[in-house]
Simulated scan of single mutants.
Amino acid sequence: MHSKVDVAVMIGSGVPASMQAQGKRVCWVVLVNGERRGTAFASPGEAHECRAAWLAQLNKGAMAGVARHAS
């Protein structure tokens, strides 16, 4: 199965209350197959690092599946 991993920006009321209390009005989140995964990030760079980690994990799992079928 091929998974899609994206970074999305949330603005205004979509920002978690804890971040709003700190004066943040925008945050970034990671979506896996359209579903939010993990926490909200204060910077796009942090979200992209998390996206890269998700992709690595998903690719590792996909490669393990290929190895099982090749045996």
Rank of each mutant, 00 (worst) to 15 (best):
H2D: 02
H2G: 03
H2P: 07
K4A: 13
V5K: 00
V5S: 00
D6S: 13
D6W: 03
D6M: 11
D6Q: 13
D6G: 10
V7F: 05
A8R: 04
A8F: 03
V9D: 11
M10Y: 01
M10E: 01
I11V: 15
I11K: 15
I11M: 15
G12H: 13
G12N: 10
S13C: 12
S13L: 15
G14N: 04
G14Y: 00
V15M: 10
P16L: 02
A17T: 09
A17G: 05
S18G: 08
M19A: 06
Q20K: 12
Q20E: 06
A21S: 09
G23R: 02
G23H: 03
K24F: 12
K24S: 14
K24Y: 11
K24W: 12
R25K: 08
R25Y: 09
R25P: 03
V26E: 10
V26D: 01
V26Q: 13
V26Y: 07
C27R: 07
C27H: 01
C27N: 10
W28A: 09
V29G: 04
V29Q: 06
V29L: 04
L31M: 15
L31K: 08
V32F: 00
V32K: 01
V32M: 01
V32R: 00
N33W: 02
N33F: 07
N33C: 15
G34P: 10
G34V: 12
G34R: 02
E35V: 15
E35A: 14
E35H: 09
R36Q: 11
R36L: 10
G38P: 08
G38T: 09
G38V: 10
T39Y: 01
T39G: 00
T39N: 02
A40D: 07
A40E: 07
A40T: 11
F41E: 02
A42M: 05
A42N: 06
S43I: 10
G45V: 01
G45C: 03
E46N: 11
A47D: 03
A47P: 02
H48G: 06
H48C: 13
H48E: 13
C50D: 07
C50N: 03
C50H: 03
R51F: 02
A52K: 14
A52P: 10
W54P: 02
W54Y: 13
W54K: 11
L55N: 09
L55E: 11
L55Y: 01
Q57E: 15
L58A: 07
L58H: 01
L58G: 03
N59W: 05
N59L: 14
K60P: 02
G61F: 06
A62H: 06
M63E: 12
A64C: 12
A64F: 13
G65Y: 01
G65S: 00
G65R: 04
V66P: 00
V66Q: 03
A67F: 10
A67H: 08
R68Y: 14
R68D: 15
H69R: 15
H69C: 09
A70E: 09
S71N: 12
S71F: 07
S71I: 14
S71G: 13
S71V: 14
